[in-house]
């Protein structure tokens, strides 16, 4: 059988690659995922799921074997804590109703609607340039770019692209270099922007020089728009201040924030799907 020369094969391959890159770029611009990319994810998904499943099972077995005693005592402590939290929760539900009633009486606009859906983490990026994760929910479940992703411990990031089949969305994590979230400190309400550094810590930038920010302060989302990306609902936990730095021109202050979410340990998250917007 006649085989084409290696040079022709190479040129065809490079042209094909160029086409795929343009296709990817066009889909990315629309906040979607290109068809070849979806095809690749479809092939990879069962293998990734197998590896994730085996990894989680092995980790569970390891924890059970090596930390059996501590698991039992921790379980007893948690039972007591559940009872406390149930009482607190009932009070908070009552306050929420009161709050809604008062907002209605004062004719204040309704807070942005949203529906929570749970999702499993399928995979993480593996380069030193980006901090991305993929979830097993897509546009069929109502997920769209700029949806907010979080866990019970705090903010994870925002959806940057989603596709219907296979149900997949890509999430830009808080620690990604180009991520930005409007933030404030819990103690003094000093406002700034939490930016990713590509490393384990984030930077709380654009703080006022006179702002009262100290090590250990809790940092929450401010609910303010940055003009691009998602608008994170007010009050979600981001992390705690590790260190505060003032620049030599005495114009601004930067704080380094330790995210409350252990990004390397999360297996499941919530996606706040926008409804009616």
């Amino acid at each position: 059988m006649h085989r084409p020369s290696p040079l022709i094969s190479l040129v065809v391959l490079l042209a094909l690659c160029l086409g795929l890159v343009f296709w990817y770029k066009a889909a990315q611009g629309r906040g979607g995922i290109s068809v070849p990319e979806s095809g690749a994810f479809l092939v990879l998904r069962p293998v990734q799921r197998t590896f994730s499943g085996v990894g989680a099972w092995a980790a569970d077995v390891g924890r059970t074997v090596f930390h059996r005693g501590s698991i039992i005592s921790e379980n007893e402590k948690l039972q007591g804590r559940i009872a406390d939290l149930e009482g607190q929760n009932q009070r908070l539900v009552r306050y929420r109703r009161e709050n809604e009633e008062l907002r209605r009486l004062l004719n204040m606009p309704k807070q942005t609607a949203g529906k929570l859906i749970a999702a499993d983490v399928i995979s993480f990026d593996f380069t030193d340039y980006k901090r991305i994760m993929m979830l097993n929910v897509g546009t069929r479940q109502g997920v769209r770019p700029k949806d907010v992703v979080f866990t019970a411990r705090g903010v994870v990031g925002q959806v940057i692209s989603a596709t219907a089949w296979p149900p997949t969305c890509k999430v830009q994590m808080l620690t990604d270099r180009i991520s930005g979230v409007g933030a404030m400190t819990d103690r003094t309400m000093a406002k700034g922007v939490v930016q990713g550094t590509g490393e384990g810590v984030c930077k709380l930038a654009y703080l006022d020089y006179q702002a009262d920010v100290r090590e250990g302060d809790l940092v929450l989302t401010s609910g303010l728009s940055l003009g691009r990306g998602a608008i994170f609902p007010k009050g979600l936990v981001i992390g705690r201040v590790l260190k505060v730095e003032r620049d030599k021109y005495r114009s601004e202050m930067t704080a380094y924030v330790d995210p409350s979410v252990p990004f390397d340990q999360i297996n499941a998250v919530y996606v706040r799907v926008q409804t009616g917007t």
């Binding site: 690659c17 990026d125 593996f126 380069t127 980006k130």
Partner: peptide, 16 residues
């Protein structure tokens, strides 16, 4: 290409 797809960035640079 697959590295770029999974990282959602620099697809052409990774492939080349």
């Amino acid at each position: 290409l697959l590295t770029g797809y999974c990282s959602d960035a620099y697809v052409g640079s990774f492939a080349f």
